[in-house]
Amino acid sequence: MGKEHLIQIRRDLHRIPEIGFQEFKTQQYLLDLLNKLPQDRLEVRTWKTGIFALVKGTNPKKTIGYRADIDGLPITEETDYDFQSEHPGFMHACGHDLHMTIAIGILMHFIENPISDSVLFLFQPAEEGPGGAEPMLNSEIAQEWRPDIITALHISPELPVGTIATKPGLLFANTSELFIDLKGKGGHAAYPHTTNDMVVAACSLVTQLQSIVARNVDPLDSAVITIGKITGGTVQNIIAENARLEGTIRTLSVESMDRVKERIEAIVKGTEIGYSCQAKIDYGSMYHQVFNDEALTTEFMDYISKNTSYHVNECSEAMTGEDFGYMVDQVSGFMFWLGVNSSYGLHHAKLQPDEAAIDVAVNVMSKYISFKATQS
């Protein structure tokens, strides 16, 4: 499959972004592509809106897994592409259109160039939420086609094309959504003494939450609490009976995540008492840290450095979240950053990754997976 064909696939996928477990058009597009390939060594099975595609080896002793996430984001696109999203209010703003295309390119390579081991491709839904990695890996299909190692990549807008960045050990943080609902007593703006104002309670709560990291997390560790959205009230002259805070928690250790949540719950309990209200906490989707297998990651970095012309960079851990963490928690593996040289970052409405990175990733992973198949 040539570069131009892969670029067209990426553009086709870019047009049809869909959110988690609603990737119906995306799944069908991928199935149509897979059905056109030679079928003698290819077996395809669907799982919810995802796909397992097994390329059988000539004399398999192990199965090498490769995961690509397939969902988009609820973001209105603002690029100047002539292949913009055809789904209003949704966009592939995290590079999953590239991720899928790269997986198809690698898969095609091994259809055309057989190796001894089998390669399992997991086209995974719902990475952005509510989380598809853990249930997909725990599915009956994955139990039958259990990979011995698993790999994945994520585009990095900040890095130039031709750069690979990763590190042994912790790569991405533990993450959790955070939703706090407050219910008090509304009333006329002229009679605040007869009400329990949830706008005031919410503002106070946001300020208190910001003290948690500063005073409860080891300074040598790292954590983030961000409240990204506050809603409350109805009109300007009615005191708000309800308010809602929406945010995210990021930590570099499981212990810190537990500690942060303990403090959130204590502070929210204090808000209930102090503002005579009721509060409810929902942590929504929670993602396990991505912890790269140290030996495999070091081997990968050494191999790419010595056997390709691409630049390999050891990066620092990041506060980004990725449900691939659940996969490497069960199966030895690693994830890496792929440079795509965009002026705008991940989850931005103007993200425009350089499509030349597709060929880089296909070459890198085709070489590395072929190398792994030579090992006993």
Rank of each mutant, 00 (worst) to 15 (best):
V200R: 08
A243N: 11
T248F: 03
E43T: 15
L252K: 02
A318K: 15
G89Y: 08
R250G: 01
K269D: 13
G162T: 10
K167L: 09
Q208L: 13
V213H: 02
S85A: 10
A361M: 10
I225E: 06
V340E: 11
E355R: 13
E262S: 06
K229T: 13
I7G: 09
G233K: 10
Y191T: 13
L220S: 12
F291M: 13
H96Y: 07
L120K: 00
Q39V: 04
T271P: 01
H154L: 03
N59E: 15
V268Q: 01
H347K: 13
T101G: 11
T151M: 14
T58F: 06
F179E: 14
A133L: 08
G95A: 07
E112N: 14
S253R: 01
N292S: 06
F123G: 04
L171N: 00
M319D: 01
I102H: 02
L107E: 11
A373D: 09
Q289K: 13
T308S: 13
S332G: 09
C203R: 10
T231F: 05
R244T: 14
Y344S: 12
Y275Q: 01
G274R: 03
L245D: 04
K372W: 09
V254Q: 15
G228A: 10
Q8P: 02
F371V: 10
Y344V: 05
H87E: 15
I273F: 07
C203S: 15
H188P: 03
F21Q: 01
L107G: 08
V364E: 11
F371S: 11
D40S: 14
V55H: 09
N196I: 02
S276C: 06
S316T: 14
C315H: 00
G247N: 12
E18C: 08
S222R: 15
A53S: 13
L296T: 12
I369P: 03
Q330S: 12
V362S: 11
L30H: 10
I249Y: 00
T320M: 13
I9N: 02
S343H: 10
I358L: 12
A68H: 06
L178A: 02
E177T: 09
F110M: 09
V290R: 01
E262V: 09
G95M: 07
H154C: 03
W145M: 04
K306W: 04
Y310G: 05
G228S: 10
K167M: 09
N242S: 12
I115S: 05
K61C: 04
Y287W: 08
N307F: 06
K185P: 00
A173S: 15
I212T: 02
I304W: 03
D323N: 10
E78C: 06
T297H: 10
P74M: 05
R11P: 13
Q236L: 09
N341Y: 05
V268F: 00
N138L: 12
S343M: 10
E317H: 11
N138P: 02
A373K: 06
G233F: 05
S332E: 12
Q143K: 15
T298S: 14
L73Y: 07
G247Q: 03
T166R: 00
H14N: 12
S256D: 15
G50K: 01
G65L: 08
E23N: 08
P74A: 08
A53R: 05
K62S: 09
I227S: 05
V312R: 01
L13T: 13
L178W: 00
G57P: 07
R11S: 08
I264E: 00
P168M: 02
F371C: 11
D148K: 06
I104W: 02
H5K: 15
G2T: 14
Q375E: 15
A93G: 15
Y344M: 06
V206A: 10
